[in-house]
Design a protein around this nucleic acid. Structure first.
Lengths: 215, 215
DNA sequence: GTCTATAGCTGGATAGAC
DNA sequence: GTCTATCCAGCTATAGAC
């Protein structure tokens, strides 16, 4: 950051350093894919990366810093994957495709899903920079929903709950299967039938409705 | 089990033994509520229970056996809570109340939710006996859905995904708040509007539809 | 930057006296 | 059954030579 380019050599070194960091993060993901997210240890990581434990500390301040770098890579993959251009044009098809991408992203790598979307590592919270790409992806969902005439914030929340609920049940109760993910198109249809017909904004009505009709 | 009542003293001892086990499990839950589910250690547990580590092994074979006992207690609480008699009679109201109970159960104790419904403890899987009460609760949901004329198995799956998705988003992204749980009644209405009008069974149609309409 | 060596700690689990 | 004492394995992290 500070004292950036007094010499051009600085860039080489920075590049090599970043490359080495990336290699360590890659080894960390390899290990986690085989042993599970919670089974990451610096010993194993160093062995996998062909270095020793102290060398790891030459690139990362702590174990949580490694988790953060892993989170950052996963978040970037997520944003890239979710913002790829859509083939379909019709809003419903776009939403189905978008949700399908999310499902595939999550179910194809459960450890990545756990790190990104569940808070399962004790004492770890992603830094703001690592988190930023995930926000971008959520903006895409918001835009696609708007194309389908779904604009209320609460409906974006309902959307994320619905799609994420399918994924969560899938990975928790039928890992590797499709018991819940096959319901995705039906779920999107259900959601759109509801959100499209809902009143655009909670108007200045005195009460939402009479209580008898709700219960 | 075997050699049960050769002496009446046996019952006393069994009762005291079970009582001591329950006390340890209670201390384990206290500790987990304060430190987090993954932070359970036998040292801390023994200290909390006023005993020493070896004594814990007089009642449980391993740490996972303690998790299993914790799981069993949580599953029983869950079944008791979810099968309490309903005040409402109208099917929709019953379903809303049932789902509300689920949400309250989960959000009121996140550690319990994690142990029961997410697989976050490595190398731990609940025994069949500990798991049994949870199945009973799911049967209740099935029955309530049937009262609302929702009988297809896939709709039970969609139901669990939807309600659990709300809970998951709530505890993951807005712990202590109500950003997602407040959408529960709307979610139930959305679900019923869909599941009630859906054809009862996937008929012997040749193709779901022409492909152009889908994408 | 990378290594050897190790500190310092915490974990689950056990031996053996009482 | 309960204790004291301890084992042994694993972990993160650091010191210091090169």
């Amino acid at each position: 950051m500070s004292k950036s380019n007094r010499e051009p050599t600085t860039d080489w070194r920075e590049a090599r350093r970043r490359s080495a960091r990336e290699a360590i993060v890659g080894a960390a993901w390899d290990l986690v894919h085989e042993e599970g997210l919670a089974a990451l240890s610096l010993r194993d990581l160093a062995g996998r990366a062909g270095i020793t434990t102290p060398t790891v500390y030459a690139y990362f301040d702590s174990k949580n810093a490694i988790y953060d770098a892993m989170f950052g890579r996963a978040a970037t993959e997520f944003a890239d994957w979710m913002t790829q251009p859509q083939e379909a044009a019709e809003p419903t098809a776009v939403l189905v495709s978008h949700a399908r991408r999310f499902v595939e992203f999550c179910t194809s790598d459960v450890a990545r899903y756990q790190l990104l979307f569940q808070r399962t590592i004790p004492n770890f919270e992603p830094s703001a920079e690592s988190y930023e790409p995930a926000v971008r992806a959520l903006d895409t969902a918001r835009a696609y929903l708007a194309l389908a005439e779904v604009t209320q914030p609460k409906h974006l929340d309902l959307w994320t709950a619905l799609i994420n609920g399918l994924v969560d049940q899938q990975v928790s109760n039928d890992p590797g299967g499709e018991r819940w993910t096959r319901l995705l198109e039906e779920a999107v249809a259900m959601f759109l039938a509801h959100a499209r017909t809902a009143p655009a904004v909670q108007g200045p009505r005195s009460k939402p409705r009479d209580r008898g009709a709700r219960r």
